[in-house]
Simulated assay, not measured.
Amino acid sequence: MILKDKTVLVTGSAGGLGKAMALRFGKQGSKIVLSDIQEDKLNETVEEFKKLGINTIGIQANVAKEEDAVRLMEGAVKEFGSLDVAILNAGILRDGLLIRTDKETGEIKAKMSIEQWQSVIDVNLTGVFLTGREAACVMAKQKSGVIIPIASIAMHGNSGQTNYSAAKAGVAALTVTWSKELARHGIRVAGIAPGFIGTEMVLKDMNAEALEKWKKIIPVGRLGEPDEIATTAQFIVENDLVTGVILEISGGVRI
């Protein structure tokens, strides 16, 4: 797919990986639909893109709400006339061990709360399902499109991330399933599983001790850069043979 004049929608794009991906596509001449739950930050990002000469709109949405997912995709088509690429990136972290015990007595001191579990599942898995489904509805009518769900290497199972790992494993499964179901409609689906990337969410929300641990064992010796994930998204869109896979962009980390 040629990127110029194509409509690219990115969820969770007021910052971090989402913003980096949207910016890269915008610089290639794509029309950009930014979306985020944080309206003020979203509006700031829209203005930033417009100053760069990128044809951009912003649609505030909570991807975990069905009505917002429908409104988001309909809004993209209403503004730009099509939806060519949907990058399903919105996500949150609520890390914690399944249980914590007293080292001496073995008594349970804490458990992962249902709020920790459900909030991550709602955004990181249900949100991908809802936005992916609605993007597919639009693209099926066009008989073309690319959907890129954002997974994580945590999909293999990462200590302290029961909720996040479960959600991202689900995203990986959706990616492969959708690639088979939607091919008949001219829609490709391929995912990206980033490793530890230097975004605000990772640097601020991830447990500091865990982050330092992972920095030391990344084979390439550093965190990834957001634009390295953005270039992967561009590769998926431009290469019409890519579908049904999850590309692990991790610097060699194996969980």
Rank of each mutant, 00 (worst) to 15 (best):
F129M: 09
V85N: 02
E47Y: 11
K109Q: 13
G198F: 09
D84V: 01
G53H: 01
L42G: 08
T45W: 03
A110F: 08
R188I: 00
Y164A: 09
R24W: 15
K180I: 11
V245Q: 15
G15W: 11
L52F: 02
L203A: 06
L130M: 07
V10N: 08
E228Y: 03
R100E: 14
D84A: 03
A169V: 05
G96M: 04
V176R: 15
I217T: 10
A208K: 12
P149Y: 10
S165M: 12
G160Y: 04
S152P: 01
V138N: 02
N124G: 08
T131I: 04
I187Y: 00
P194T: 02
S152N: 06
T243K: 03
F129G: 03
E39D: 13
E67M: 10
N158M: 10
N163I: 04
E200H: 14
L98Q: 13
G91W: 00
E47H: 13
I59K: 07
G132R: 03
E225Y: 15
E48T: 14
V242I: 10
Q60S: 15
L211T: 01
L17Q: 07
G96D: 03
L9A: 08
I99N: 13
E225Q: 13
V123Y: 02
G58W: 02
L34F: 04
G157K: 10
T45P: 01
N62L: 08
K4E: 07
V220W: 12
W178Q: 07
E104L: 15
V146H: 04
A151Y: 06
I236K: 03
N158L: 12
I148F: 03
V245I: 14
L72K: 11
E47A: 13
G26C: 08
L174C: 04
E79N: 15
E67R: 11
K215Q: 05
Q161N: 13
G96Y: 01
I246L: 14
A20C: 07
Q116K: 11
M139N: 01
I108P: 01
A208V: 12
R254I: 10
G132F: 00
V220C: 11
A230V: 06
E248A: 05
M1R: 14
S152R: 09
G186L: 01
D240A: 07
E79C: 10
K19W: 09
L17I: 08
G251S: 06
Q161I: 11
A230H: 06
W214D: 14
A173C: 10
N163T: 06
M155E: 09
A173F: 06
G252W: 00
E248C: 00
M73A: 11
K19R: 15
I99D: 15
A183R: 13
V146M: 07
W117T: 03
